[in-house]
């Protein structure tokens, strides 16, 4: 515990900044109903009300409070992105580890399926499927999780491969250990660091991806508050020099930058600080 604290103190400014922002976002997401002065979908005034006064950041195109929607947006967008990433990791990570340990036709089969899925650009694939199954939150989560699982699979397999070739795994195999032991005791603990870093990067990617889809009007559907669609709904203000629609975009940028800063620091640490 003390060591962790020292690590945090000695972390570079960018990583400390990142961790602070992540913490802030989590708190906002958790306590959204307490923090928001108005309801998520409540129409409280005229459209495009200016900043200040009753509405801290003005109102949106339908007259809903911008600040409240930003706060609730943290909850919705973060929550969905997090859920998607977790699903992608469960699916892709498990398959990747098993493929690396089992080898042979299991590995071959899974790898070829992933190769083919990855041959299609993700955004196009998502648009294609969403156009068919419709844009509900569930289909959004499932589709993106499946697509992202291919990337996780590649990385998990590659990381696990470097562990699997080591002699202690061979020793465990020769002892007669089963798959469960090999995955949970021998490989996973040694693959954890890069996988955690990848979780951060994947989260950023999923987050940006969902925001982009929402921005295109194909992601999280109204009236749910979501940062991507908030930009889209209020974009017209930009041409009048009003920065309000940039706020949700900034919110997206800030969290992804923060996560990236933290991950960058973690990767740098785990690479053994060879550059000095």
């Amino acid at each position: 515990m003390k060591r962790l604290f020292i690590e945090l103190i000695r972390a570079p400014l960018s990583a400390q900044f990142g961790m602070a922002v992540i913490l802030l976002y989590i708190l906002v997401a958790l306590f959204a109903p307490v923090l928001a002065p108005f309801g998520e979908t409540e129409v409280v005034g005229d459209g495009f009300a200016p900043w200040g006064g009753q509405f801290l950041l003005g109102t949106d195109n339908l007259g809903r409070d911008m600040f409240s929607r930003l706060v609730f947006g943290a909850r919705n967008t973060l929550g969905i992105a997090f859920l998607t990433t977790v699903l992608a990791f469960l699916l892709g990570g498990t398959c990747g580890l098993v493929a690396a340990i089992k080898g042979g036709w299991v590995d071959q089969g899974l790898s070829r399926v992933v190769d083919i899925l990855m041959a299609i650009p993700q955004l196009i694939f998502a648009l294609l499927i969403l156009s068919v199954v419709g844009t509900t939150a569930t289909s959004l989560v499932l589709v993106i999780a499946l697509l992202d699982a291919t990337r996780v699979f590649r990385l998990a397999r590659a990381v696990a491969m470097t562990v699997v070739v080591q002699d202690f795994v061979e020793a465990a195999r020769l002892r007669g250990e089963g798959l469960w032991w090999l995955v949970t005791r021998e490989v996973l603990p040694n693959a954890a660091a890069p996988l955690i870093a990848e979780f951060g990067l994947r989260f950023c990617f999923v987050f940006l991806f969902i925001s982009a889809l929402s921005f295109l009007g194909l992601g999280i559907q109204p009236p749910t508050a979501d940062w991507g669609s908030m930009v889209r709904d209020n974009a017209v203000l930009i041409t009048f020099g009003d920065v309000s629609p940039l706020l949700p975009a900034l919110a997206v940028a800030l969290i992804t930058v923060s996560v990236n800063f933290v991950v960058d620091w973690m990767l740098h640490k785990s690479s053994g600080l060879k550059e000095c």
Binding site: C204, L208, S211, A212, F215, G228, V231, A235, I238, T239, G241, V243, P245, L246, A249, L250, V252, A253, T256, V257, V259, N260, F261, D264
Partner: peptide
């Protein structure tokens, strides 16, 4: 570069427009 990678494209686009 790390920041630029993390920005959503629409954020960059609207900043430029602004």
């Amino acid at each position: 570069a790390l920041s630029a990678v993390s920005f959503p494209e629409f954020f960059v686009a609207y900043l430029l427009i602004l």
